[in-house]
Every structure is written in structure tokens, then in C-alpha cells.
Design a protein around this nucleic acid. Structure first.
Lengths: 234, 234
DNA sequence: GCCGGGCGTCAGGATCGCGTCAAGACCACC
DNA sequence: GGTGGTCTTGACGCGATCCTGACGCCCGGC
């Protein structure tokens, strides 16, 4: 069951959305304004956020900016404004979809399904936990065996990029572009240096990585649960 | 630079889209009908597909069905029909977004950016499964009997090329060009060597391939479901 | 039965990519 | 102006990967 955070200041619409989403099998959390929304998002770990742009306290894009750094799930924006300029602004601010009011509930649900299908198989959680260390994407904090570890900005950028894609091979070009920018796509040196530093800080045995794996010639992969080594061949 | 496959039967709209997308920095490939679209999608490796539903030969949902599950990128559907029932159908068939004609070009580009930002599908969304092994195209991971197997970059490039075209004969020239580049179109040695390595790593009995078949003089074919033994010779 | 083309297999050597280390450049703060 | 931390850059050794050529087998044509 997926959890939806619905942010809207109109109590009637909020109620209608809650009922429809519950009926569709979602776990629903609501917030009437932007600050509550950000608090709820961090506390309730929703898989997806439905966000009305017309909030009393914060601008919709501010809420998006607050969610963006750590929230990996999709954000579906609701708005009364149909002007394409507004749509472009919201989508470029980090929204995944934009639906204008009044909307058809069946369509909204379908767009939610589509967003979730692509979104996160792993719930959009702010914390990634392994047997040895914990990465808190919202608080930007890493603890190894419960002890907080300091990471430099570059180390953090690299680690979060990997941790946001558990199990997926992240290409070296992809990593370099995300951390250093498009101009550094060939500096694979950087990856070697910083991966080594991360392993030294996080891995129980840096010489034999359990979590931060190298795929020679392709990229790196973060594995939450190391594969069983018993029947490994070759 | 991202590559976009645009599928539409209206030459004027196709031209307008090609110009706008080129100007926005995309590499554009086009197709006027469904069968061409499927062939182009397999050959050109687009990052995203813009798909008109009103095609002369195939229904839009058929094209979607042909694209999934091996195509990992987003599919943005264009349609003249604004009925919410159509939207729901397309979104549930695997589309990531639905834009009704006439559309605003700036909005379409923003929705494209949003779709591409989310990037490739989550692991597990684009899996090709056989009785013996699983190929996860999004995570770039292969497991044999549940055990992860390491593939070299060349092995992976070759395998994904075959797996993206299940059941279809992929020509030698096609494979060589996709993996090694146009200058190596005659080096059929490479294919023999690397196919052997793939079979050794994936096939239950490498000497008698069940999934990676050779078509002498033509090319190779990946079969998900091997034909029944009955009709087999001997 | 002979012959040739295409394929599978194998092994060795050249090359590439990775991990590691260390030193210099840069920056912010004191 | 000094100091500590962070980022860049280069060099080195080692293992993995890729390329290459040779050999034998199967099959279809002659």
C-alpha cells in the first residue's frame, strides 16, 4: 500500500481527495499549508505528494524546493491556473506532473498510478539503512554503528547519488555529471578517489566493499543487502 | 544530449516537433506509423518516446504494449482525444504522461524535461525473465538462479542488444555496429567469442543454447520461451 | 567422398581501468 | 598572515578485459 501526502488549503477538496484515495487503496496523510506539508513529508515518509500550488503560507515552488533535496518520490501538482507559463515553472521546479482544476478524479488516479509505477519501488524514504551504516537523506547525516560520521560536500553528493538508486548500476558519466557537472564527464579519477574515501569511512572492510561495488568500465552500484556469497561462482 | 523518438502520422506536426526539439538540444528520430516506431525504438535507443495515439496501422496502446517492458525510458502520449477515459487507458497501458492536442510547445518541452529528469525506470520495472536467468535492463544486472552474475561492458552491450529484441533475428552487422561501432562491421570473430562467453555465463547448457540461438550466416536471436522439445529434430 | 564456409573453442599477450598514495592548489576561517 | 580542511592532479602497480590467431567441427554444395 502506498502512502500519499495531500496538500491543499480547501477543506472540501481535501475531504473529497481523501475519500477517493482511501477508496483506491492508498494510505492518506494531509496537510493544509506548506510548513505542515514539509513537516509531514519528513515524518510520514509518503511515496508520493499531491500538492496544491495555492497555499496560504508558502508558495508552491517553495514547498517543492523544500522537498526536492531529499524526497525522491514523484510530486503531482494541482493548480487552478491553466496558463502554460505556470505549468512550465512548476515542472521545472521539480514537479512530475501538473493537473489543472477542476480535474477528473479518474484521471488524477491514473496519473498517480503512472507516477508511482515509475516512481519508487522502494518507498520514498529519507533514510537508507544497512547493517553497518545509515544514510539520512533529509538530515544529510551518516552514522556508522550509531556514530555520526562527517562527510565533505563532494563525498555527500556522490554518496546520495548512489544511495538514491539502491541496486541500480549508476554510470560513471551519470555520477560525474550529477556531482561535478557536465564539463567533468571524463574525469573518472575523481570517482576513484572519492569512492575510496567513502569506502574508508563507511565500509567495514574498505578493501573488500560490501555496499559500494565497482562495475569496471561501467560505473558503481550501491547494494543495501549484500548478495549471498555462498554459491558465488567465478 | 538526449534522443527522442517522435511518432506521428501528421507530417506537419512531425516537422514542427522535429524543429522545436532540435532547437531544444535533442537528437530527434521520427516514425510515421506504429511498426516503424517499434523498429526505430529498438534500433535507435531513444531516451524518451513521444507517441501519437492516432496511427494508421496500429493502435497506440498496441505500440505501448510493444514498447514495454523492455523500453526503460518514459513515453509521453499525444492525443486529440481529451476524454478522461482515454487518458486513463493510455496511462494504465504504460504511458508516463498524456498531452491533448492542440498543445503548447513550451509545456510539452517542460513535460519532456520532467520525464527525463526522473530518468530511467526503477529496477525491476524493465525485467526480461526466463526460466533460468533474469535481465534487469534498468539496473543493468543479470541474475542466474537468483545469483547476481558480473558481465563486462562488452558482454552487457551485446546481451542488452539481443534482449531488447526478444524473438527477433538481429543481424551480425547490426550487432557489431551497435556494440563496437560502424568500423567493425566485418569482425564476426568478436560475435563468436562474446556469444560464447555469454552462453557460458547464462545458459544452463552452453553447448546446446536454449536462449541465445545462432542463425548461421545471418545473426543471432534471443528467445524468451524456448520452443517445445517435441517439434525439435531428434 | 571431397571441399569450403561458417561457427565454437581456446589461450596468450597487449591494453585498459581501478585502487592507492601523496603532493600541490585552493579556500575559508581565524 | 597563518592554519586546517577540501579539492584537484599525477604516478604507479596490478588485475581484468579485450583483441587476435589458430584449430577442429559441422553442414551443405559439388
Amino acid at each position: 500500500m502506498s502512502r500519499v501526502l495531500v496538500v491543499d488549503d480547501d477543506p472540501h477538496l481535501l475531504r473529497a481527495l481523501r475519500i477517493s484515495l482511501r477508496a483506491a487503496g492508498y494510505d492518506v496523510v494531509t496537510a493544509p499549508d506548506g510548513t505542515t506539508a514539509l513537516r509531514q513529508a519528513a515524518a510520514a515518509h509518503p511515496d508520493v505528494v499531491v500538492l496544491d500550488l495555492g497555499l496560504p503560507d508558502l508558495d508552491g515552488t517553495e514547498v517543492l524546493a523544500g522537498l526536492r533535496p531529499w524526497f525522491t518520490g514523484p510530486v503531482l501538482v494541482l493548480s487552478a491556473r491553466a496558463d502554460s507559463h505556470d505549468k512550465v515553472a512548476a515542472l521545472d521546479a521539480g514537479a512530475d506532473d501538473y493537473v489543472t482544476k477542476p480535474f477528473d478524479m479518474a484521471e488524477l488516479l491514473a496519473r498517480l498510478r503512472a507516477a508511482l509505477r515509475r516512481g519508487t519501488a522502494e518507498p520514498g524514504q529519507a533514510q537508507v539503512v544497512t547493517d553497518h551504516f545509515t544514510v539520512d537523506l533529509a538530515a544529510k547525516q551518516v552514522t556508522v554503528d550509531g556514530v555520526p560520521v562527517r562527510l565533505t560536500p563532494t563525498e555527500w553528493a556522490l554518496l546520495s547519488e548512489l544511495v538514491r538508486n539502491p541496486g541500480r548500476l549508476v554510470g560513471q558519466r551519470e555520477l560525474l555529471q550529477a556531482v561535478w557537472g557536465p564539463a567533468y564527464e571524463r574525469e573518472t579519477n575523481y570517482l576513484r578517489v572519492y569512492l575510496a574515501q567513502l569506502r574508508r569511512k563507511l565500509e567495514p572492510d574498505p578493501a573488500h566493499p560490501r555496499y559500494l561495488h565497482t562495475e569496471p568500465g561501467m560505473g558503481y552500484r550501491f547494494l543495501k543487502d549484500p548478495p549471498a556469497r555462498a554459491s558465488q561462482r567465478q
